[in-house]
Amino acid sequence: KITVTFNGEEKARRYYKKMQKHNLKVEIRVENNQWVVHVE
């Protein structure tokens, strides 16, 4: 499981979509004013 933190929504969403293309289970959320993407 990987957790990647971004300081911008745009970058986070781009990464999220990229990971989805690989058929990975991805989850995006905001934690402590940071955009966090969890990849299983």
Rank of each mutant, 00 (worst) to 15 (best):
K1F: 14
I2L: 12
I2P: 03
I2G: 04
I2T: 08
T3I: 12
T3P: 02
T3G: 03
T3S: 09
T3N: 04
T3A: 08
T3E: 06
V4M: 11
V4T: 04
V4L: 11
V4K: 10
V4N: 03
T5Y: 15
T5P: 04
T5Q: 07
T5R: 14
F6I: 02
F6K: 01
F6N: 01
F6W: 02
N7G: 08
N7S: 13
N7Q: 12
N7T: 13
N7M: 10
G8F: 11
G8Q: 15
G8V: 15
G8N: 15
E9P: 08
E9Q: 06
E10P: 04
E10H: 10
E10D: 12
E10L: 10
E10I: 08
E10W: 12
K11Q: 15
K11G: 15
K11S: 15
A12I: 03
A12C: 04
A12F: 05
A12S: 02
A12T: 02
A12G: 02
R13Q: 09
R13N: 07
R13I: 13
R13G: 03
R13L: 14
R14N: 12
R14M: 11
R14C: 11
R14S: 10
R14E: 15
R14H: 10
Y15T: 01
Y15H: 03
Y15M: 03
Y16N: 01
Y16K: 05
Y16P: 01
K17A: 13
K17V: 11
K17D: 14
K17W: 10
K18A: 14
K18P: 01
M19D: 02
M19V: 06
M19H: 03
Q20M: 12
Q20E: 07
Q20W: 04
Q20C: 13
Q20T: 07
K21A: 14
K21P: 02
K21Q: 13
K21V: 07
K21L: 13
K21I: 09
H22T: 08
H22K: 13
N23V: 04
N23M: 07
N23Y: 12
N23P: 03
L24Y: 14
K25Q: 09
K25H: 11
K25V: 09
K25P: 04
K25G: 04
K25A: 08
K25E: 05
K25R: 11
V26G: 02
V26L: 04
V26D: 01
E27V: 10
E27Y: 10
E27S: 13
I28E: 00
I28G: 00
I28W: 02
R29L: 12
R29F: 13
R29I: 11
R29N: 06
V30Q: 14
E31F: 07
E31Y: 07
E31T: 06
E31M: 07
N32Q: 06
N32A: 07
N32M: 06
N32D: 09
N33S: 08
N33T: 05
Q34F: 11
W35K: 00
W35G: 00
W35D: 00
V36I: 11
V36R: 02
V36W: 03
V37N: 00
V37Q: 00
V37T: 00
V37I: 05
H38M: 14
H38A: 10
H38E: 15
H38I: 15
H38N: 09
V39C: 04
V39I: 12
V39T: 03
E40S: 12
E40D: 10
E40I: 13
